[in-house]
């Protein structure tokens, strides 16, 4: 993981002074760019700007406070990262320019690895989507929707059938997936990428 290659963090917080900060460092290090997570001043602008915060167990601000306190299990088992819709409202308003949705992505992947998520709907959806992409190189909406809804929302299917049929009859959904030519090349790249991710 990126976490253990020279941590390029924004602030040299010392885990010697406070070992609780190790979790914060780990999350920040595993986030794509320079997360700036250490710079959070707990102003709450993110939570106040968040369109889905009412459905979150903790607002983004609370999650960042919990991260700092080293509350690993509580953070990774909360629904907050899964309810984040990646709208980037918080990002453009955060006075510290913390990469909030990217941190949410990191928390999701850590929750999957640690199997700490409470509700499997969201991780299953992401994993089914990725499964399709790894098999075909393209997304396959009908396959994804059918597999996902049968497992997680069987009761919604009857009322959704008209929509599904509408999309099909208007040719907005393919019955068979499209496979890219370079699928083996893509598989080789992803295979190596997964091994790289695993190097600690």
């Amino acid at each position: 993981m990126l976490a253990n290659t020279a941590p390029q963090t924004t602030n040299p917080l010392s885990t010697v002074i406070n070992p609780n900060l190790r979790f914060l460092e780990e999350v920040s290090g595993a986030t794509a760019g320079i997360s700036r997570l250490e710079m959070c001043i707990q102003c709450g602008t993110c939570g106040g700007s968040c369109p889905s915060s009412t459905d979150m167990e903790y607002t983004p601000r609370s999650i960042f406070a919990m991260l700092r306190a080293g509350l690993r299990e509580e953070v990774l088992s909360s629904n907050t990262p899964w309810i984040c819709v990646s709208c980037y409202h918080c990002v453009v308003r955060c006075p510290q320019e913390v990469h909030i949705p990217d941190v949410m992505y990191t928390l999701k992947s850590m929750a999957i690895r640690a199997k700490l998520y409470k509700d499997a709907t969201a991780p299953d959806f992401s994993m089914t989507f990725v499964d399709m992409v790894e098999t075909y190189g393209r997304s396959f909406e009908l396959g994804l929707a059918t597999r996902h809804y049968l497992k997680h929302f069987p009761l919604r299917l009857p009322s959704m059938a008209p929509m599904g049929l509408g999309l099909l009859s208007k040719q907005r959904m393919e019955i068979t997936p499209h496979r890219i030519e370079g699928i083996n090349q893509l598989k080789a790249i992803l295979q190596l990428a997964k091994e790289l991710e695993a190097i600690e």
């Binding site: 993981m1 990126l2 595993a30 794509a32 990262p81 990646s86 990217d102 949410m104 992505y105 990191t106 999701k108 992947s109 999957i112 959806f125 992401s126 994993m127 989507f129 990725v130 992409v133 190189g137 393209r138 997304s139 890219i180 030519e181 370079g182 090349q185 893509l186 790249i189 992803l190 190596l192 990428a193 997964k194 790289l196 991710e197």
Partner: peptide, 25 residues
């Protein structure tokens, strides 16, 4: 030619390096 899916908002939340490798192909 032969572009692949960008991973939408799904792959980023699973595996960092594979997600960015998928996009970068």
């Amino acid at each position: 030619d032969d572009w692949n899916c960008c991973g939408a908002t799904e792959y980023l939340g699973i595996n960092l390096i594979p997600a960015y490798a998928l996009i970068s192909r």
